[in-house]
Simulated assay, not measured.
Amino acid sequence: MSSSTSSIARSGTNVFEIVKYNVVLQTVEAARRSACSSKTKSSSSILPPPNNPPPPKPLLIGMPCETTGEFPVLLLLHGYLLSNSFYSQLINHIASHGFIVTAPQLYTIVRPDSSDEIKSTAAITNWLSEGLHPLLPPHVQANLSKLALVGHSRRGKGKGKEETSTSLKFSALIGIDPVDGMDTGKQTPPPVLTYVLQSFHLEMPVMVIGSGLGEVKRNPLFPPCAPKGVNHEDFFNECRKLACYFVAKDYGHLDMLDDDTKGITGKATYCLCKNGKSREPMRRFVGGVVVAFIKAYLEGDSSHLLAIREGVETLPIELQIVKLLL
Rank of each mutant, 00 (worst) to 15 (best):
G62M: 04
Y87L: 12
L60Y: 02
P104K: 07
F71I: 01
L82R: 09
P50R: 10
H78M: 15
H93T: 07
L77A: 14
S44Q: 11
T68F: 03
V73T: 13
C36R: 04
S85K: 10
T67S: 14
M63T: 15
I94V: 15
T40C: 09
Y87A: 03
Y80F: 15
T67R: 08
P48K: 03
P56S: 05
N51C: 05
T40F: 11
L90H: 04
Y80V: 08
A35V: 12
S96H: 05
A30I: 06
L76W: 15
H97W: 07
I61G: 02
S37V: 05
Y87E: 03
C65G: 00
M63C: 12
T27V: 09
P49H: 04
R33T: 13
S85V: 13
N52W: 00
N52F: 00
H93Y: 07
P50V: 11
A103G: 07
P64F: 03
S45E: 13
P56Q: 04
S83T: 07
I94Y: 06
L75A: 07
L90K: 06
F71G: 01
Q89R: 10
L81I: 13
L76E: 07
L59Y: 03
L74T: 11
L47M: 12
E29A: 11
P54Y: 02
L82N: 12
T67W: 00
L60G: 01
Y80W: 15
S45Q: 13
Q89Y: 01
G62A: 15
L90Q: 10
V101H: 07
V101R: 04
P48N: 02
I46E: 08
I94W: 06
M63Y: 11
E29Y: 03
H93W: 07
T27C: 05
S38Q: 09
S88N: 10
K39Y: 09
S44C: 14
P49K: 08
A95G: 04
T40K: 14
P49A: 12
N52V: 15
N51V: 00
C36Y: 00
P104V: 06
T40Q: 14
L59R: 06
A35Y: 04
Q105G: 03
A95M: 03
S44R: 14
Q26I: 11
H97I: 04
L74Y: 10
I100D: 02
R33I: 07
S34R: 13
